[in-house]
């Protein structure tokens, strides 16, 4: 019993310590950010390309099919109440408020987050970060900050693209395949989607962008510099990002209601 309590105590202590270090790390990243944006915008743009543009295919394909399946499910369930014209509303609200930001963040963690963590972890394992230190270049500023900012900028854009391709997917399924009236599809959507809904989606996309990018660079930077350590850091990036995104999603939704 005593041993169990001590284990719990140690784990809690370790968690608090790590969480504190994580917050300090966040502040460090934020502190260096303005300088990088103003003086080295090229570094950030390169990372927006790496994390954003290179994730486009997966985001668009997934967006299309998520929208399509929402159209399919929405149609078959709404048809029971003769309300299939509302399918546009259902799909739009689901995508804009919830699925757009959440699924994009999860895909981002899997595609871009893992790439960031393993890249930074390997740079550490192969002494590239030490070499920068020795060349009097701060690796936090030169390597981590541009990658973090790239992710933060890319995420809202990816969410917007995901949502749009999702709506297109729903349109293809509902209007073109299931013959929902095209006018009703768009008009119902226009009537019931409020600016407040869009604001919620945009807020979530920014928050998830910060969380997913920060976790990815944090895990990479703190990886144990071995093959196994980098592998583990990559896995942790996906797992912790997924959990954090879902918890934060719940909290933001609760606050915005």
């Amino acid at each position: 019993m005593k041993g169990l309590l001590r284990d719990i105590y140690n784990n809690v202590l370790e968690f608090v310590r790590t969480f504190g270090a994580f917050q300090l790390f966040f502040l460090r990243i934020i502190r260096h950010s303005p300088r990088i944006v103003l003086r080295r915008p090229g570094l950030v743009i390169k990372q927006i390309h790496n994390t954003g543009a290179l994730s486009l295919v997966i985001i668009m394909v997934c967006g299309f099919f998520v929208g399509g399946v929402l159209g399919l499910q929405g149609y078959s369930n709404l048809a029971r109440f003769n309300a299939e014209d509302s399918v546009g509303t259902v799909v739009a609200l689901a995508l804009i408020k919830e699925l757009g930001p959440v699924i994009t963040a999860l895909l981002f963690a899997g595609r871009a987050g893992t790439a960031l963590s393993s890249e930074i972890g390997l740079m550490k394992a192969t002494d590239q970060l030490s070499a920068m230190e020795m060349m009097a270049v701060n690796p936090v500023r030169r390597v981590l900050v541009p990658r973090f900012l790239g992710g933060v900028v890319a995420m809202p854009l990816l969410v917007a693209i995901f949502t749009c391709t999702g709506l297109f997917g729903a349109h293809v399924v509902a209007v073109d395949l299931l013959s929902v009236d095209v006018g009703a599809f768009w008009q119902q959507m226009q009537l019931s989607v409020d600016i407040k809904d869009i604001r919620e989606g945009v807020l979530k996309s920014f928050v998830f962008g910060i969380v997913a990018s920060l976790l990815a660079v944090w895990e990479g930077y703190n990886a144990i510099p071995t093959a196994e350590g980098v592998g583990r850091a990559t896995t942790r990036t996906v797992v912790i990002t997924a959990i954090s995104v879902l918890i934060l999603d719940f909290m933001i939704t609760a606050v915005m209601l």
Partner: peptide, 30 residues
């Protein structure tokens, strides 16, 4: 450290840029 030059055991070249840019790196930074 700008007055130090260090050669690491494995070279520690930056793997995302080419040889020229690796050598140019300290000049471009400082």
């Amino acid at each position: 450290r700008q007055r130090f030059g260090m050669l690491f055991q494995n070279g520690a070249l930056l793997t995302d840029i080419n040889v020229f840019e690796n050598v140019a790196f300290p000049l471009r930074e400082h």
